[in-house]
């Protein structure tokens, strides 16, 4: 993935964040969309270690103020701090409008595998299982293929699931896809790519409408 296509993906994914939402961004790619949000967008960022209204990355770090990824962040007008039980009450209680998560694999039916590669990578799930199961809307941001060139969007996940059937939308460097009752639908395509190229890189059936596809 070139830095240009990565930037396009992040810029496009950032448009998923709408005014008025409370949003939790996963560690890694999802957190990077912060740089692409309009500065005047009214949105509340939640961090599972106990912050609502997470402010920008701190210029002068406070040793007691990090986000869930360990980045030194800041407060803003309206920030609240709370304990971990309250933080996950927000998650399970349906107060998180949108979560954007990374993925090892995501299926055409919205299954997400993101926390364990048995025998290789077993760090524990942190809060990902609860976010994926309980956020009102779950979107995934991931490269379309892995480092070995294999599709990350698959018919059925081979890894243990983080959550089943909860992903609504997938943002990649090649495409935006929606999980629909009929199947996985290509809704936008990266500029300069053909539908054939996207299908080639996708491990499951990709539905494409008749009309022209929007590009990003």
């Amino acid at each position: 993935m070139s830095s240009g296509s990565s930037e396009r993906m992040l810029r496009r994914a950032a448009r998923e964040v709408q005014a008025g939402m409370t949003v939790n961004l996963g560690i890694g790619l999802p957190t990077q969309i912060l740089a692409y949000l309009p500065p005047d967008l009214e949105v509340c960022m939640h961090s599972e270690n106990g912050i609502a209204g997470v402010g920008p990355i701190a210029l002068n770090p406070d040793r007691n103020l990090i986000d869930a990824g360990g980045a030194y962040v800041s407060v803003m007008p309206g920030t609240a701090f709370f304990d971990s039980a309250t933080s996950f009450a927000m998650v399970r209680g349906g107060r998180i409008d949108l979560t954007m998560l990374g993925a090892f694999e995501v299926s055409g039916t919205g299954d997400l595998a993101s926390w364990i590669i048995p025998g290789k990578f077993t760090p524990g799930a942190g809060g990902a299982i609860e976010l994926a199961q309980k956020a009102r809307r779950v979107a995934v941001i991931t490269t379309h293929v892995d480092k070995a060139g294999r599709p990350k969007i698959v018919e059925k996940c081979s890894l243990p699931l983080t959550a089943k059937g909860r992903v609504s939308r997938i943002f990649t460097d090649m495409a935006v896809c929606d999980v629909t009752p009929e199947g996985l639908r290509l809704v936008e395509i990266a500029e300069g790519l053909s539908v054939g190229e996207v299908r080639q890189a996708t491990g499951t059936v990709l539905l494409v409408g008749d009309g022209p596809l929007a590009t990003f």
Binding site: E48, D83, S84, A85, S87, F88, V91, R92, G124, A125, G126, G127, I129, E130
Partner: peptide, 15 residues
């Protein structure tokens, strides 16, 4: 030995 508990459940079981 390591026992993993999803973060929110860990908090709530302690609470």
């Amino acid at each position: 030995e390591v026992e993993f508990v999803p973060q929110g459940l860990l908090a709530e079981r302690i609470r």
